[in-house]
Nucleic acid binder design. Sequence first.
DNA 1: ACCTGAACACCGTTCAAGT
DNA 2: ACCTGAACACCGTTCAAGT
Lengths: 181, 181
Amino acid sequence: MRADARKNYDHLLTIAREVFAEHGAEAAMRDIARRAEVGLGTLYRHFPTREALLEALLRSSFGALAERAKSLEASMPSDQALVSWLKEIIAFTHEHRGIIAPMMGAIEDSDSALHASCVTLRSAGASLLARAQADGKARADLSGAELFDIIAALAWLREQSSHASRAERIFKVIAGAILSH
Amino acid sequence: MRADARKNYDHLLTIAREVFAEHGAEAAMRDIARRAEVGLGTLYRHFPTREALLEALLRSSFGALAERAKSLEASMPSDQALVSWLKEIIAFTHEHRGIIAPMMGAIEDSDSALHASCVTLRSAGASLLARAQADGKARADLSGAELFDIIAALAWLREQSSHASRAERIFKVIAGAILSH
DNA sequence: ACCTGAACACCGTTCAAGT
DNA sequence: ACCTGAACACCGTTCAAGT
């Protein structure tokens, strides 16, 4: 990549992070280009879709969350590890308002730039779930795909401001439904 | 209301129903006016917000769902009544793609045209829940507001096409978390 | 009293013209 | 090779001008 292009690329990522933090993942692409003081075409040249931009921005975070699953798996009872990881995923999506909808769209669309990251996360969750199931601590009749659905539903709910005061309670109720009893 | 206004009002509702059915509740207001062959200002005069239009369209359905709760309550064991009603609510929101997000926004915004309908639904659910709780068939530590959150989460999930194949399973898992065991 | 549609301030996306 | 921003086809919402 040419030096000026590299500079634009990096600067766009920095500004996009700010704008997404302020307005959520549906923020106007135009606004990002404007605030980066770059032509709109430059933004689209580097990131042909909104999802490509989100992916470039969050790739390392998705990787870290997957690694985190392994580390929790190694340092905690399987049920605690699963629940802790679920908490961290929900906290992450909450910090990145608007990210769960494109993720849910990407999980079964291999053309999406977010596809690989979503599959990685689903696998990380499935692995934690499988270990808890092997220990008899999570209900046996749940798949990784179903766990991902539940995560997505909780993540979306967490984005709704009218739900804020009940977030912890609902998390406990739903997490309880995943564990065996 | 003047006769020509009445005619426009009714015609707009008919067309809006079609357009929302085709494109979901976020369909373009312009598109509705266009297809109704009415000026855009006429649409906004009758329905100053999208929510006012949705409310006029769905008011009777919301009322019917609330009535349905009472009728199920009278004709079934309390746990079955609760679960059946939940199923009907999810089916309804599924038929009206995009409706759950404005509903979730309206439930704590008394200025929203959808507010009253949402509160009515929440009350209907709370009543079913309370009866099941009194019978020891639903977990006692759940409020009507929490039930509404869970309904909203399930409804949103049901809108995601990647989730379609698992909808029944997830419903059972979550409904199971509401009942006692 | 009611209707119309231009006007305004936005979008996402593309692409000819420039450096 | 890369950048720019006008151009196109859209939005939601308002409001002056008409009937």
